[in-house]
């Protein structure tokens, strides 16, 4: 049995961005030595997310546009106040809510050393409050090759 945890650094360059990390997750799986098992991908940040959808720019844009429609920046949020533990104000409630709505993790089976996923499924790191350098946890679990 192998249990391996990798921390991927993902750097966003925009306020909001869908970043395809499928290849990087596949690389972690291939290097892990796991033949059959699971891979779990999780963002470490509550103003970002993890999504699986078809990997085409129009959908990336639709997701960001309609999340913004559901959670507009200027809505009335209780989070817009001074957070003494952070030494600053919290005014990114919409980013947190998008993270809650879209989710923060995904899981895929591994078979014969490769991720098993639909041909159109793409793993996205979702930046909702960038640009920032972020961390994704990728944990691979399964029987050894």
């Amino acid at each position: 049995m192998i249990i391996k945890l990798e921390r991927l650094k993902v750097r966003s360059s925009k306020s909001e961005e869908a970043i395809d990390i499928t290849g990087r997750v596949e690389e972690v799986v291939q290097k892990s030595g796991v033949r059959n098992g699971f891979v779990n991908v999780l963002t470490a940040h509550t103003s970002s997310g993890l999504l699986v959808t078809e990997g085409i720019p129009c959908l990336e844009e639709d997701i960001l546009t309609h999340f913004a429609r559901v959670f507009p920046e200027d809505a009335d949020y209780h989070h817009h106040r001074y957070l003494d533990y952070d030494g600053r104000l919290g005014f990114n409630a919409e980013a947190h809510l998008k993270s809650v709505l879209g989710g923060i993790q995904c899981i895929f089976p591994i078979e014969n050393g490769s991720i098993v996923k639909g041909s159109r499924q793409t793993i996205y790191f979702m930046e909702y409050d960038g640009p920032l350098e972020r961390t994704c946890f990728v944990q691979v679990l399964g029987e050894e090759r």
């Binding site: 750097r11 966003s12 360059s13 957070l83 952070d86 030494g87 600053r88 960038g130 640009p131 350098e133």
Partner: peptide, 19 residues
């Protein structure tokens, strides 16, 4: 300074300026 946010590469400062 009492700030709780993560440390970030210098390039992120420049990206924050860019956006």
């Amino acid at each position: 300074f009492q700030i709780g946010n993560n440390f970030q590469p210098l390039e992120v400062f420049l990206l924050q300026m860019d956006v």
